[in-house]
Design a protein around this nucleic acid. Structure first.
Lengths: 304, 304
DNA sequence: CGGATCCATGAGCCGTCCTCATAGCAGCAG
DNA sequence: CTGCTGCTATGAGGACGGCTCATGGATCCG
């Protein structure tokens, strides 16, 4: 008999305040009043017995406990949605002769190159096969917790992530590798000695093995330029400002003024895969997406 | 914007009706009236748009959709509990100097021999180390979905299960093998030709490999006696009524009137492990239990 | 044909949660 | 210092949802 009972509306309030970092902003998002939010948060804190937000002039910042509570709340809210859609699917599947048409929202977190070059054909086929699924893609920097963090915090149902020894699949999540792609050298087309150009680097592409490989190459210049993301890197290379070492996916959109050179048999590679939560892994919508991802990834694996 | 919103009380109603197979019985469990349950179920069915229970004079039986909804509901309710306890733990851990004392309820499902001979020392140490944890063990037959089914349906937080190729860890759950134990022959002590006795069998001990091994043994008599559970088998053997082939855990409680004979290097074995849901795997209480299970299991693995 | 045992339904009550209005507080500009 | 502008806190009142109570309908049973 637990005297604590958080209603869905309270969970939504929790999430909104944590996301918007303020009671007033959260009220706008929820379509309610600031007063309601204040009352609700106070009630939740009383029930749980923990201060979840630090209030101040600036608004409200979640405490460590509040952050954790919000992450749980996001996932519980998602499971409530799943309960409804899965129950409806089960009811439809019961009627003989009809094939259950799967549908519902599907939130995908992906790093930039995956969102631009890997997902579009996959989502196109997914939409053709299951018109009821409403997929939304949010681009997330693959730094820190990255796309897997989005999934763990309940902000996404499935994440496209780089998977390696330095960034394994978190224990509370499940997932698999989809493809392993090589890094390659990209440089301005027609340049006489491309390896003499400065190296353009960006934040997200570093796995431990890749760094190690870099260190072993004596021709890589120490003077490097740092750019915002892989798209910026490519356009800089295209303008003749330098060369770069980038994974295959990022090179899909390389402008015509660039040339790509293979790095040989010892070239570094990176593994790209998906992660999701176990309860969502059993979902028809997520399974359908994974199926399409696999169908798309296999030829590329073979090509490598 | 989904117009569906199931309150915790509604989830509890769902679970109670599914468990008790009747509105009136569910009302008693929930400490409310039959009318409230009827209204609530009707409201839920209207919101979800699916008939969840078949009503009859016998009471109410969940439909396939209702069964699924109840399983989801159980897990969501458990996650709501986890949200609260984890949030409180996070708040306590925030205060420097204090070590967070973990606590809360912990529901374990185990098959009979594990509950009798594997869990007691583990739970004793767990209780000594974390007095706040309230562990409850329910004995479940390891047939059909077994202990893993209890976990998947949200009736238990962790299950002790036999793990093999014919019964792998379900994809929506996580877990690991704890120990691999051999089957051995148990027979009445002092019997001149124990292998001539009828074989006493019981429901739960069959893995595919074990069955295969049995078939390859020409000395196993075809005339077998079938008993209720492994305890009953042991007492029958102890009374001189037959012999049996049983896994090590079940033999821990063998009476003194029995003798145990090793089956040699080709003897069949079974793997015993634990399963839990991914969201619970991250819980401090579950992690503490798994730690104790591992500490207890390792020596046994070495002994085999 | 009562009687027992289910679930269904309508009326009315009560608590919960929301809105509205207002107060308190901190920074900032003049 | 004062007034303005963000923000949150708080109290009073009202709408709504969910509960109880009482009753009705269906089915099985002796």
């Amino acid at each position: 008999m637990s005297p604590v009972d958080l209603a869905p509306q309270e969970l939504r309030t929790l999430v909104a305040v944590a996301d918007e970092r303020g009671f007033s902003a959260a009220a706008v998002r929820l379509g309610t009043t600031q007063s309601a939010v204040s009352h609700a948060v106070r009630g939740i804190e009383r029930k749980v017995g923990v201060v979840l937000f630090e209030r101040g002039r600036y608004g409200a910042r979640p405490t460590a406990a509040g952050e954790r509570a919000a992450a749980h709340a996001r996932r519980i809210l998602r499971m409530l949605e799943v309960l409804v859609t899965e129950t409806r699917e089960a009811a439809r599947d019961g009627k003989i002769g009809e094939i259950g048409e799967i549908g519902g929202p599907l939130r995908i977190a992906a790093f930039r190159s995956a969102a631009l070059y890997l997902l579009p054909p996959v989502l196109e086929r997914l939409a053709a096969r299951h018109p009821g699924i409403e997929a939304t893609v949010t681009v997330v920097r693959e730094v820190g917790p990255g796309t897997a963090g989005e999934v763990a915090d309940g902000r996404a149902d499935l994440g496209i992530a780089t998977i390696g020894t330095s960034s394994p699949i978190p224990p509370e999540l499940v997932g698999d590798v989809l493809l392993e792609e090589p890094y390659a050298l990209v440089h301005p087309a027609g340049h006489p000695r491309p390896r003499s150009l400065p190296l353009v680097d960006w934040q997200e592409n570093c796995s431990s093995y890749t760094r190690q490989w870099w260190a072993a190459q004596d021709w890589i210049p120490t003077a490097t330029v740092r750019a915002e993301d892989d798209g910026a890197v490519l356009s800089m290379v295209g303008s003749g400002l330098g060369m770069a070492i980038m994974p295959g996916l990022s090179l899909t959109g390389a402008p015509p003024t660039t040339a790509i050179t293979d790095l040989g048999p010892e070239r570094p590679t990176r593994r790209v895969g998906y992660v999701t939560t176990p309860e969502l892994a059993a979902t028809a919508a997520v399974r359908a997406l994974v199926r399409e991802l696999r169908a798309d990834a296999k030829p590329q694996v073979r090509a490598v």
